[in-house]
């Protein structure tokens, strides 16, 4: 698709991304979007993008460093972030939530030019032979680079004893071995935790941008990821579907998310 408009490099700033997305969006005679320039899917990775990337690029901070207080409504450009996001849906019409059901389906079926997703999607995308795609780091804005990353850890419960404990230690040793990590990476795309193995892929065209993005990434402390995701999805829906002002929706989102955090910390 980039070749259609004579691009040989992916856009690297946010404004460039949006300009390219506008050029690559296609509409039918009635003005209905039939190919999205950019997926706008808050239920996918976009709520992370909004929270940890756009908020910071608009000069804000999402939470206090102890993760107990929501700050995105009180710092930086506040609700401008939300307004900016909804404007891309309403004013630019480069994509909208649930276009072609979801961002992954749209991108996989060549109906969306650009999307934001995690490295864990690479396995799925690579399995689709008709898809010709590349990976780039997230676009920067106002000279700020930011990224969201999540990680998970293996553990053994206190209930494991005797033979079971021995077996689980054996399994843990295997699953964290270099061999298992490389297998895992090749099949799913999830990045290895062992820096030595990770460094081997630092310049890989697909894994490389994800690894480089980790250098400036933030991990959100989720008290209840589903509830916190829905807070941002709902804020976008309120502005996009209900016409409520971004300022009001953003304030309400911060209030609701604060309640979720309070409930967790006051337990």
């Amino acid at each position: 698709m980039f070749k259609e408009i004579g691009l040989d490099q992916p856009p690297s700033t946010l404004n460039e991304v949006i300009e390219v997305a506008k050029e690559l969006s296609k509409y039918d005679k009635k003005g209905n979007l039939i190919r999205a320039g950019f997926t706008m899917q808050p239920s996918g990775q976009h709520h992370h993008w909004l929270r940890e990337v756009l908020v910071r690029q608009f000069g804000g901070v999402p939470y206090t460093s102890d993760n107990k207080t929501v700050l995105y409504d009180k710092t930086g450009a506040g609700s401008d972030v939300l307004q900016w996001y909804v404007d891309r849906i309403v004013k630019d019409n480069i994509g909208f939530p649930n276009f072609l059901n979801d961002d992954v389906t749209a991108f996989q079926s060549n109906m969306a030019a650009m999307t934001i997703d995690g490295s864990f999607r690479l396995g799925t995308l690579d399995a689709n032979k008709s898809l010709d795609y590349g990976v780039a780091e997230l676009p920067e804005y106002n000279g700020i680079k930011s990224n969201f990353a999540s990680f998970w850890a293996h553990g053994i419960t206190t209930n494991a004893t005797g033979e079971k404990l021995e077996a689980s230690i054996k399994f843990l040793k295997y699953i964290t071995s270099p061999k298992a990590m490389e297998l895992w990476l090749k099949n799913t795309g999830e990045l290895p935790a062992n820096p030595e193995i990770a460094s081997k892929y630092y310049d890989d065209p697909k894994y490389g941008p994800f690894l480089k993005g980790l250098e400036y990434a933030h991990a959100t402390f989720f008290a209840d990821e589903k509830a916190q995701r829905e807070v941002l999805m709902n804020a976008i829906d309120e502005v996009y579907l209900k016409g409520i002002s971004a300022a009001e929706a953003w304030k309400k989102a911060a209030g609701t998310e604060q309640k979720v955090l309070d409930e967790f910390w006051n337990k």
């Binding site: 209905n32 979007l33 039939i34 909208f96 649930n98 276009f99 072609l100 059901n101």
Partner: peptide, 18 residues
């Protein structure tokens, strides 16, 4: 039904309306 209800270009019902 979820797919039938999709917006264009995918949703069958919306394509009929169009």
């Amino acid at each position: 039904w979820r797919w039938l209800y999709q917006p264009p270009p995918m949703g069958v019902l919306n394509n009929i309306l169009l």
